[in-house]
Design a protein around this nucleic acid. Structure first.
Lengths: 145, 145
DNA sequence: ATGAGTGCAAAGGCTTTGCATTAGG
DNA sequence: CCTAATGCAAAGCCTTTGCACTCAT
């Protein structure tokens, strides 16, 4: 995904909930774009000195409700964020159960297809409407074996 | 899974790391057993008045390192806990993206099998050893549609 | 008796919020 | 100009920890 497109989509998504694509928000998106794995709020503050805590937290919340970023799971208890699928592409996570490292990975198409088709029934039975799925593979990374 | 078995397994797992199956720990396991969905620490404190905060947090940590309970994902940012697969059986979660409700669900065997077989390659390529998988289906619950 | 486990209360750390200031339309 | 957005600092809230007490072996 070209960087231009990302910002264009972000701006559009924000506009749809009457929010501007301000300098801090753009900077936040750029920081997330550069990372190849989800970031927690304190990481972002540490990475970019020009982003005050309050801007990070407040704008992550705004970007999340606009659908520009999404929360993801780590083995820790702090919320981590990454760009939404529409900006970053659909992918899954490989989580190290020991150190908490999270990597982005792609899985075979047949798996993706089966996930969506094979599960519709279960979801409907529970009275839910399916929005998507989140698959995390748990393992031990090279350094933790 | 019979309740007796659960406590027996819990005791054994604790013993394997030189920990006792004390009254608070047993009580914690019983509370998690009764719930049909993962609980966060504050839920447990609210549900069971006889469990002080410090006991809940301290013992959840002990039970987690013993492999009696595991952390799971919700759409919030607080850690939720449930009994480990060995005590509760393998299952997945159906998460409401709006209100955060989490339900336990089973998925078809063919899906389970494909998840484990179809993904080994991707995991190995990343230098990870696969421990398991965690699949969350995201949707909107009956009340939030 | 002796160390593990517990309970209370205080400390700690991440996150949120109030308010005055700045920036964008 | 006028409202949204920002920055700082203070407040909040969940979680962790110190310490004295209790329980089990």
């Amino acid at each position: 995904m070209a960087s231009n497109d990302i910002h264009e989509i972000a701006e559009k998504k924000l506009a749809s909930i009457q929010q501007r694509y301000s300098s801090r928000r753009r900077r936040l998106v750029e920081t997330l774009e550069r990372a190849d794995h989800p970031l927690i709020a304190t990481d972002i503050v540490a990475i970019d000195d020009d982003l005050p805590q309050s801007s990070v937290y407040r704008n992550l919340a705004v970007l999340e409700s606009a659908g520009v970023v999404v929360k993801v799971l780590t083995n820790g208890d702090r919320a981590a964020f990454e760009l939404a699928e529409e900006l970053k592409g659909h992918h899954h996570h490989l989580v190290c159960v020991q150190c908490g490292l999270v990597l982005d990975i792609d899985v075979p198409n047949e798996v993706e297809e089966l996930l969506d088709s094979g599960l519709a029934g279960v979801v409907a039975a529970a009275g839910f409407s399916l929005v998507g799925h989140r698959l995390d593979l748990m393992g031990r990374c090279r350094d933790c074996q």
